[in-house]
């Protein structure tokens, strides 16, 4: 690894990978070399299920600007949902 900036969190949800939908258990967030995005470094998020092996992965590689905008948008969306009383309803 070149930057070594990597974090992992536990998550709950589903993702659609090469083999279809699967349960997500972890999200790996890094700022390091992407595999495909045309940047030297990218904000990479791998939504994975480690118990299913390396192939259980849904990947995104974002520019730093796009990642910040996404993070803010996620939080804003959750704020609206909370304000509307939608949270905690599964």
């Amino acid at each position: 690894m070149c930057s070594m900036i990597a974090e992992q969190i536990k998550i709950d949800g589903c993702g659609k990978g090469a083999g279809g939908w699967f349960d997500l258990r972890e999200a790996d967030v890094s700022y390091d070399h992407p595999f495909n995005a045309p940047f030297e470094h990218a904000l990479n998020i791998d939504f994975v299920n480690e118990s299913m092996g390396p192939g259980a992965r849904v990947a995104v590689e974002l520019s730093a600007e796009a990642a910040r905008e996404l993070a803010l948008t996620i939080l804003a969306t959750l704020d609206r949902a909370e304000a509307g009383g939608f949270l905690n309803k599964r």
Binding site: A6, D46, A59
Partner: peptide, 8 residues
């Protein structure tokens, strides 16, 4: 990607 997540 898994190696990256493990810190290399």
């Amino acid at each position: 990607a898994k190696a990256r997540a493990q810190g290399g």
